[in-house]
Simulated scan of single mutants.
Amino acid sequence: MQPKAPRRTRERILELSLRLFNDFGEPNITTTVIAEEMEISPGNLYYHFRNKDDIVNSLFAQFETEISRMLAVPADRRPTVEDVWQYLHLMFELVWRYRFFYRDLSDLLSRNRKLELHFKQILTHEIQVAQQLCTGLRADQALEATDREIETLATNMVVVATYWLSYEYVRNPRKYTEQEVMAEALARGCYQVLSQIVPYLRGETRVMFNRLADEYLQKLK
């Protein structure tokens, strides 16, 4: 096997910046801090990125690419409640990897017009996917809801998912970066989002949800 090529400086800067932003919050990290942690000169950093917003935008481009691949419903069949559960689980894992966007969302969007526009598009897409998942369940008579109820339900699911990490940060700010603590927080978030759909589930799908919920909640004990 050939040895792996060393990562380029640009990639290392992005990787380090993401870790620092996630651990300490984007507003608390400057390009000087990033350069010092990288053990490179500020000039070397500015050769790759014009400023901190350039770093943030590059990280957001990575996030946007990943979430765009994820935001899709099964093309060859109607979705099941297990699909919805799996979709949420993967979504929360992605949100955790780029958690600084969600933790500092209001501040970031107020300062960065590009992020503001693109994040709106992501939220719109997420709501559309949630509506498609619910409509698919309704088509199989696994869910009973009107179009208006599905529209409201999809919006509420996205709202809870978007701000769940902010809620968890307020609950445990000193343990926010502890992997084990936040793994449980993400599991709770997944359950909280999906539990909103429970009153609309019918038949075997309701039974299946209860089983999945019992298994999930058992892991949190």
Rank of each mutant, 00 (worst) to 15 (best):
M1L: 15
P3I: 15
R7H: 06
R8I: 11
R8P: 05
R8K: 12
R10Y: 03
I13A: 02
E15H: 07
L18Y: 03
F21Q: 09
N22G: 07
G25K: 01
E26S: 13
N28F: 09
I29V: 14
V33T: 12
E36F: 05
E37D: 11
M38Q: 08
M38H: 01
S41A: 14
G43T: 08
N44E: 07
Y46R: 10
F49K: 01
K52R: 13
D54M: 02
V56I: 15
N57S: 12
S58Y: 05
A61G: 04
A61I: 09
F63V: 07
I67N: 01
I67T: 08
M70K: 10
A72Y: 09
R77G: 06
R78N: 11
T80E: 08
V84G: 03
Q86M: 13
Y87M: 09
F92A: 03
F92R: 06
F92G: 00
E93F: 07
E93N: 14
R97D: 10
Y98A: 04
R99F: 02
F100I: 02
F100T: 04
F101M: 01
L105M: 12
S106I: 11
S106R: 09
D107N: 13
L109D: 03
L109M: 11
R111S: 12
L115E: 03
E116Y: 13
L117Y: 05
L117R: 11
I122H: 10
H125Y: 06
H125C: 04
E126F: 15
V129E: 00
A130I: 06
A130S: 10
C134R: 01
L137C: 02
A139M: 08
A139D: 06
A145N: 04
T146D: 01
D147W: 06
E149R: 03
I150Y: 02
I150F: 02
E151A: 15
V159M: 10
T162V: 08
T162Y: 00
W164L: 09
S166F: 01
Y169K: 05
V170R: 12
V170A: 14
V170L: 14
R174S: 14
R174M: 13
R174E: 15
K175F: 09
K175A: 13
E178P: 12
Q179C: 10
E180K: 15
Y191R: 07
L194P: 00
L194Y: 01
S195H: 12
L201Y: 00
G203R: 01
E204A: 15
T205H: 03
R206Q: 11
M208Y: 00
A213N: 07
A213P: 12
D214M: 14
Y216N: 13
Y216P: 00
L217T: 07
L220D: 07
